[in-house]
Design a protein around this nucleic acid. Structure first.
Length: 262
DNA sequence: GATGACCTGTGA
DNA sequence: TCACAGGTCATC
């Protein structure tokens, strides 16, 4: 989600009000929910980008012709995707992904009438492009969730707290690393059953979500390694020196401190 | 709600 | 050669 925000800012900064001349869509598998390369090539040229929005990890770019609004161009970066505008990427290098520039990793792109480009570079092909996405499949964005809402979803779930926080239909934007970071900061074990959290813990979590998203968000992305959670086998907690635990929680590799996360 | 598939580059 | 990383989706 932090990468998505960096990408959104890059697009807002550099790609708005530029008219699409051509569409590069060499990978039909990368287009989702019925969109085909042929459709993209017939619909998008002639439109200009008018706004760059984001909900969780989903990037949404509004388009318009001179006379009417066009479709919303939605892009998902998966875990290894990046946006490049005129060949330049936003944010820092990714932690778990290739950062080279093999042309075959360009899964989708727009060529602007002024000669510039916007590309999605995604080595692992887990990203996606679609038109007019259903935004409501996502919960409220993590940057704006309120205490009452967080309390509501936590107290009525018997899943591990980490699984609840990572569920995009409940809160949009918290991925594996960011969720570990939030729980590390508040000292809560990711495997705790959500409904058993105390009100103090729920408050701390709600607060940590917005603080963490904001403080890490100003530094480019959650894959940059700019974290307190030490994510490698045999690591020790940077806060108290206790051994870090490596487990699977909510279906994902999870690191937590054996001492201060309870 | 939990699990495995999807996909592919990386490093051992 | 193989385990592993991640977000999302279909399936149990």
């Amino acid at each position: 989600m932090l990468e998505a925000e960096a990408a959104r800012a890059l697009i807002a900064d550099r790609a708005l009000y530029r008219k699409i001349a051509n569409v590069h869509a060499p990978d039909s598998w990368f287009l989702k929910r019925g969109l085909t390369p042929r459709m993209a090539r017939s619909i998008l040229p002639g439109l200009a980008l008018t706004a760059a929005r984001r909900r969780g990890k989903l990037l949404m770019i509004d388009t318009a012709s001179s006379s009417a609004d066009g479709p919303v161009l939605a892009m998902h970066l998966g875990m290894s995707g990046r946006i490049l505008v005129d060949g330049e990427a936003a944010g820092d290098p990714l932690l778990y992904a290739a950062n080279g520039d093999n042309p075959k990793w360009r899964r989708f792109g727009l060529k602007f009438a002024d000669g510039g480009t916007l590309y999605v570079r995604d080595p692992r092909r887990l990203g996606a492009v679609e038109l007019d996405p259903d935004e409501d499949r996502l919960g409220p964005d993590a940057a704006t969730v309120k205490l009452g809402y967080v309390r509501g979803i936590l107290e009525r779930s018997h899943a591990p707290v980490k699984a609840v926080l990572m569920d995009q239909s409940r809160i949009a934007g918290l991925g594996n690393l960011l969720t570990d970071e939030v729980l590390f900061r508040v000292g809560v074990d990711p495997a705790r059953v959500a409904a058993t959290l105390t009100d103090d813990e729920v408050r701390a979590i709600a607060r940590a979500i917005s603080v963490t998203v904001r403080t890490l968000g100003t530094r480019g992305g959650s894959h940059t390694g700019d974290h307190m959670v030490a994510r490698f086998p045999g690591a020790y907690c940077p806060r108290d020196g206790a051994p870090m635990l490596r487990r699977t929680v909510g279906g994902r590799t999870t690191y937590s401190c054996s001492a201060h996360q309870r």
